[in-house]
Write a protein that binds this DNA or RNA. Structure first.
Length: 106
DNA sequence: CAACTGACGATAG
DNA sequence: CCTATCGCCAGTT
């Protein structure tokens, strides 16, 4: 199982109503420095693999896309899943960060 | 083979 | 808050 396949697998297991960070996904997939690869995957495989790309945000709990470049679209999708943003447009990890217990050890 | 790229992350100033 | 730098991955050119 290569890293890319692992990432896709991890992405598919993100539950509805939760979000994950690039670094978190990379770590779960086996390489904590693979965050950049995660980005590439979201851009190239999200369509084919039906990946929940909108549930992926950066380590600060914010959407990385720029306004007018998908930001609003992603935010809308997240709001529809019940995820909320605070005044600084950030997501509260305490409430919405995906915490996969099964992988915390692996 | 080398350089470039992408929605990153942590750190430093 | 901001910019800059380094580190790392893998697909593309």
């Amino acid at each position: 199982m290569n890293f890319t396949a692992m990432v896709v697998d991890v992405l598919k297991s993100i539950p509805h109503g939760k979000v994950a960070t690039y670094g978190q996904i990379a770590t779960l997939a086996g390489n904590r420095f693979g965050a950049r690869q995660v980005v590439w995957i979201l851009n190239s495989l999200s369509e084919k693999e039906k990946l929940p790309w909108h549930r992926v945000i950066n380590s600060q709990g914010r959407i990385s896309l720029k306004r007018g470049a998908g930001y609003e679209h992603q935010k809308k999708l997240l709001l529809e899943e019940g995820i909320k943003f605070d005044k600084a447009d950030k997501i509260n990890f305490k409430l919405f960060l995906w915490q996969p217990k099964l992988f915390s050890r692996a």
